[in-house]
Simulated scan of single mutants.
Amino acid sequence: MYKLTTPQGSHSVSAILFDKDGTLLQFVSLWGSWGDCLLNQFTENLEQRGITIPVEHFPTWLGTVHNRQGNITDYDRNGPLAMGTMEDLYAILSWQSYRLGLSWAESMELVHRCRQNAEAMMEERQPVLPLPGLLSFLDECKSHGVPLAVVTADETGAAEKHLGWLGIRQYFSEVIGTDQVTQGKPFPDMVKLACQRLAVDPSTVAVIGDTNGDMRMAKMAHATVAIGISATSDVNTALNILPDADFIIHSFVELGIEGIHQ
């Protein structure tokens, strides 16, 4: 067992499970770039068909916040972009183009082309940045031999790639994407699968994430502690976003880990 120290006290844990987007890597650095490309491709293709979409409609589709230029600057931590699967997001856009007059087949073909362009952009730019204090905390965990895993709403292959871009894949014994389970977040399936592969009991692990779906997943799996991570310094805002967190941190600098000698 290991002692995970936090500003609110310490917890005995056998492993730590991390969400990926918004927890290990800065969400907007990756998915803001992807979303901007996807939405731009989507609207350009529709405009070629004589269909114009007001920019103010974008936030309601994927749960995003845009600046005056229409670029993504933030996101709803409990919205589709943060919590949905890739197939959820593509289905949302397909539905929107269907509502605007395209056939369902045309809608799916359009979104597929936009998806390919967005993925090509991501491969070229690899727009990922770690959260503050993450690398030092992962090094600390590694030095003590703490089993670590990733449990993400993303697909496993994409998650492996993003962790590789960030240079941190080697820290994690397991990477569990939503494609490996029957039910994704907020259901406990990913936590249970990760714990099974790590040979630990779910009741002895810590789960760290940036959405309440992560917190609900931890609670449903009976994890020993659900730690929310929030960039906002406003306590009430953080609590509104993460009401089911056992406590909230703002940086990995606030966490420490050490072995328990028995």
Rank of each mutant, 00 (worst) to 15 (best):
I257E: 02
G167M: 04
A82V: 09
L131Y: 09
M1F: 10
G213Q: 11
P54R: 10
D76Y: 14
L166D: 00
L102P: 05
G213W: 14
E56H: 15
G9K: 04
A223L: 05
V150W: 10
E47R: 15
A105G: 06
L255N: 02
V13I: 15
L38Q: 12
Q8T: 12
L193Q: 04
M86R: 15
M86G: 15
V128W: 05
H57N: 05
A105M: 13
T60Y: 15
Q183G: 00
F27C: 01
P243K: 09
Q180V: 11
A159F: 05
A231D: 06
G101K: 04
L46G: 02
G22I: 07
T178H: 10
D19V: 06
M1P: 13
D201G: 07
R99C: 07
T85H: 09
Q196F: 10
V28N: 08
E119V: 13
A105S: 13
T60H: 14
Q170E: 09
A153N: 14
T6L: 01
S143G: 02
Q196C: 04
L93A: 05
I249L: 04
R49D: 03
S33C: 09
L242P: 12
G79L: 04
S10R: 09
K142Q: 14
D76H: 15
A245W: 07
A245E: 06
P188E: 00
